[in-house]
Amino acid sequence: MTSRTSPPGPKPSLPTPPPEGARRSHALEAISAHFSSHESLHVLDLGGINQANLDFVTGFGHRLYAEDLVRSFDGFFSPGEISSGQFTEGRITSFLDQTFDFPDQSCDAAFVWDALQFLPSTLAQAVLDRLHRVLAPDSLLLACFHPDSSTPDTLAACPHSCRILDTRHLLLVPRPARRPIQPFNTRAIERFFHGFQSVKFFLTRENLQEVIARR
């Protein structure tokens, strides 16, 4: 990864108002600044590809690796494993090897969005540890967490397809199926990212916790 002096950037400013439903994202602004100031980054998008994110990342001249972590999890583990919540270490390792087939420290940024919250906790921690391994020092990871609520109704939710509209705005589109969600409060998120150099929180109007973690 190399620094650049004058970033091209796909949409550096926003002359027109954002479309309906778009929300300002300070975490996205931070990661966009990182994109503008560096060249030829290798960026991971683990929320399932969409055209908006593809155009945004490649517009900076970076390379995008796309994977749908939640869908990949559903495809890899059997319904029996998922319902029982029992995942052997060997199975987890082979899932990670299949999903993150990269050399150590070879990636420069990662969009995880809300995917970690929709994985069983043991697997979510294993995924984060693997991300820590494949991300290069000083690289950034963007994740978001739905508000913690202990009522049983909110223990299932829809994962979102997060679309980058420009350097400041995101559009969150709920995906069709509801699924179990792991509750995280601020303290739990801090513990979750303990291996990272720094963690910044941004609380949105919808009570969504955005997190930028620096490797």
Binding site: G48, I49, Q51, L54, R71, S72
Partner: peptide, 18 residues
């Protein structure tokens, strides 16, 4: 010009030819 529609499953690297 890569174009990927919603609900398509794609896993891999995307690189645009300039």
């Amino acid at each position: 010009r890569p174009v990927i529609e919603d609900e398509a499953y794609f896993k891999g690297n995307v690189e645009t030819i300039r």
